[in-house]
Design a protein around this nucleic acid. Sequence first.
DNA 1: ACCACGATTGACACCGGTGTCAATACATTA
DNA 2: TAATGTATTGACACCGGTGTCAATCGTGGT
Lengths: 350, 350
Amino acid sequence: MNNQNIRITINHVADEAQVSKKTVSRVINNEPNVSERTRKRVQETIARLNYFPDPQARGLASSRSFLLAMIYDNPNPEFVTEAMLGILASCQKKGYELVVHPCLSKEELNIDSILTFIQRIKIDGVILLPPMSESPLLIEALRAKKINYVRLLSNDNEFPENLVQFDDQNATKDVVAHLIKQGHTKIGFIKGAINSESSERRFSAFIEAIAANNIELPEGYIQQGSYTFQSGLASGLTLLQQRPRPTAIFACNDEMALGVIAAANKLNVDIPEDLALVGFDDSPHSSEVVPPLTTVNLQVKKMAGLAADKLLYICENNIVQAAKIPCCVTSELIIRGSSSSKFADDLKVN
Amino acid sequence: MNNQNIRITINHVADEAQVSKKTVSRVINNEPNVSERTRKRVQETIARLNYFPDPQARGLASSRSFLLAMIYDNPNPEFVTEAMLGILASCQKKGYELVVHPCLSKEELNIDSILTFIQRIKIDGVILLPPMSESPLLIEALRAKKINYVRLLSNDNEFPENLVQFDDQNATKDVVAHLIKQGHTKIGFIKGAINSESSERRFSAFIEAIAANNIELPEGYIQQGSYTFQSGLASGLTLLQQRPRPTAIFACNDEMALGVIAAANKLNVDIPEDLALVGFDDSPHSSEVVPPLTTVNLQVKKMAGLAADKLLYICENNIVQAAKIPCCVTSELIIRGSSSSKFADDLKVN
DNA sequence: ACCACGATTGACACCGGTGTCAATACATTA
DNA sequence: TAATGTATTGACACCGGTGTCAATCGTGGT
């Protein structure tokens, strides 16, 4: 009557299954050299007793923790929470948990404190979100300490085996194709932040796509933004005052696209009648704004899930290259009212 | 030359300080019955060797984990990330780390899976974010299993010792006072979701403040929203078509206030000239929108930090009531262009 | 039937701390 | 000074697993 709250240990399982605890351990860890008959019996016992090995004891004995860490310094909460969801989905399949470790961008990147954090609690591996994933110093330090890591959306491709990327190029092509299909030939472009390679990739893909379609591109149609609303507003005003005025604008993220909407309102330019607008990210507001924004779904959750899969594969096999797991996620164009009059009904409010 | 990477253990410290490891353990845990001289010596040795006790070994021996969990199911990423920052700031002071555990709202709340999660990795305590903090079943289950918890922003006050609240009432009063100071007497109100008690608290505080100032409040000035952009848009349109038209609107969150901005644009009502608008939450977009939104800073980070302090106090003292730590956070009104023509300059774009 | 050999299994120490309790040191009182 | 009590300290088992290595099992070859 008082056996309700005792924790089931490996000893209980061993006794019950008539084997040594070492054999149970072998079964738990899927080690070879256990006869099929014994393995079955132990597995059944584990299931029957609802036994779950203690991660601390396991970790203490084998220098692991069954914890992954997400290291981030991301101004975009949506990105962070989506990434967590993706990572956790992968973690739970394998019995791992996720520890979060933000690095406030205001301070200088303190690599030592990150390493200390990882080593003190013996984090099994870390997932680096941008912009942490782009720090050569951090990567170098992790490699030196032989800490498992996977980078999300990094720009430099020095160690592609530890990288999960987004296919900016095809995404951009899809956007241009969509605009052209709507009949647009005067297409403006707003770049992201100056140092951002994702912005650069989108820009060069844009140039390619434009060229491939024999479309003219006046210099003034390209504006430098900085991924902020304000920069989108400013760039939008500039673009909409070009003559001939662009009939379509592609902004490198949704924030800037929202700025363009503000600019269009200011100049009495109707979207989508007079201007088709496309953003990038599928941020939550993009669907709520008027008109709802056509945008590219970044699939952060999916990318983060893949990153976690990769990392767990590396952790469990002590292998540095997890080449088997794909590392490039393809995009999805989400067409809404801002670029297509077919969707203009969305604007109406009951 | 090869002693670089060995982990410093309690034995090293004990040897170095000429005491038993048990005594070192006493010092680590701030236990009494260690002479001041010995304590000093051990502390110095710990510092000199840069020793840090292994949380796994510590946990295995004493049934702890030095991990807190944040249990959430929050549609608002900004809220979640801010809460994490607050919690982590408190955790780091005490050498704890944070594990995140989302519960997807689409599925039914699975209390068993939460309990299993907590017990399997021996989480020391959990912080419940709304709406998880409002589930009586979950609270009941946690109490039954004697799991330490603190609730953030819950409505029911059955166990106030485990609760960190926000002072909706005073915040609302501040908003009304601000609007009255600007000369407004025709003030509309948009409620939040129907079941939300924070919305109810704000509403009743609003009614009180209005009554206290002898202001008339036509029935049509009160609209039921649902915390969404769309509901704000709809309520805004309704409000702005009342006669006499309200000269100020207070929306129960920023999302809805953004909807009101859209409504005002649609009806050619100028903000702030013809309409003063105030939101609630200080969400990131509130400062970026045109005009920037006057709003109330929820201080999520601060609340979450207090919650973590409380929880850690409970964990470390095995005390259920952490009455010493304050449980109600006061607000901060952030005045921007949407409610005050003094700030109208913000609208101009260079 | 006997031996060699690989497959299977278990005994036991160990991971790095904490809990228990007995041993020792020191201070106080008679 | 001895006796008593309290403060300080350490020895040792234990938390719940894993690593190492030796013991045992089963099988095929001769």
